[in-house]
Nucleic acid binder design. Structure first.
Lengths: 165, 165
DNA sequence: TTGGAATGTCAACAAAGCTGACTTATTATG
DNA sequence: CATAATAAGTCAGCTTTGTTGACATTCCAA
């Protein structure tokens, strides 16, 4: 029954449906960042620090260039964030072993502690949302998100994802 | 079989699964905003202008206070954006009819044109993602997003959503 | 050994958020 | 009616996080 299917798709993708998806994405992202933002607002850090700490925790020993590609910001912008994190003893920047131009980034114990605090909060919200929506919904959620990424971001995402578990 | 179900849920909500969801959300949001950002970078506007224009288009005649609640920023921050939009003739700010303290906001023809350009781009990406993932996935996507919102944001979202269609 | 890549740094700037204090209308209330 | 509260706007100043552009350093590789 290809005509019924076609009809469904047309009905399904009304501008109004798409608009609701757009607004859901907007409001949900606010919730998504709310808990880490609250934690960081007390300290001298912001969302940019969270992102850096997250991806260093995710791939210990990653290079600055690697991080730049993942975060999609300029090196000057990242450098400012990294500098404060290194100065404050949350991140350890070690000269590369094979290529000494590179810097390999690691979290210190203190950095790991902050990372845990932030990701605990963020995971708790994610867990609650997943529980409320159920397994099938989560599968759909992930499918749509992946389809929404730019191609090169999707590649990065798969790479990080598949390097673990 | 409640034990199998319980086992599935435990397996399902591993930290690794949650982490992938978090990263998917991060990368997808970049894609989500990429097209409007590109369009706006040419003009003297940014993401804040996009948001204002979007919600004025969504609820023509909305008040400044209303917009403040939806966007979750300070009036000073919104005012700066609104002022430029009014000066540039994209937004019309009319004194309230019943309550003259209020200002009712409307898009001008020029404002509608920009809004259409931005939302066309954003909807095109959304449509492509929805098509790629399929109807069931979209349903799950929406469910998880709604569960991820803060309670008061969810209320706002439902209110806007249900005022249309 | 020289060119280019990776990294870092300085300076200047912009967008977009924030706080706090204040004004001006207008409405609501005691 | 007088006063309090509300909606909106404004000024000043600050923070975070992004941007360009210019330049230095280090070091790998052809």
């Amino acid at each position: 029954m290809p005509e019924v299917q076609g009809g469904e798709n047309l009905l399904f993708l009304t501008d109004e449906q798409l608009r609701q998806g757009i607004e859901a994405m907007f409001f949900a992202y606010r919730g998504f960042t709310a808990d880490p933002d609250r934690i960081l607002s007390g300290m001298a850090y912001g969302r940019a620090h969270h992102r850096a700490v997250h991806f260093i925790a995710r791939a210990p020993g990653t290079t600055v260039n690697n991080l730049l590609n993942i975060l999609g910001v300029t090196k000057q912008s990242l450098n400012r964030v990294l500098r404060t994190l290194v100065e404050d003893g949350l991140v350890d920047s070690r000269v590369g072993k094979s290529d000494k131009r590179e810097r390999n980034l690691y979290l210190t114990d203190e950095g790991l502690e902050l990372e845990r605090k932030l990701s605990d909060a963020q995971r708790a919200r994610m867990r609650a949302a997943y529980r409320a929506a159920g397994p099938e919904a989560v599968s759909g959620f992930r499918q749509v998100l992946e389809a929404m990424m730019d191609a090169d971001m999707r590649r990065q995402y798969y790479q990080i994802r598949d390097s673990k578990s």
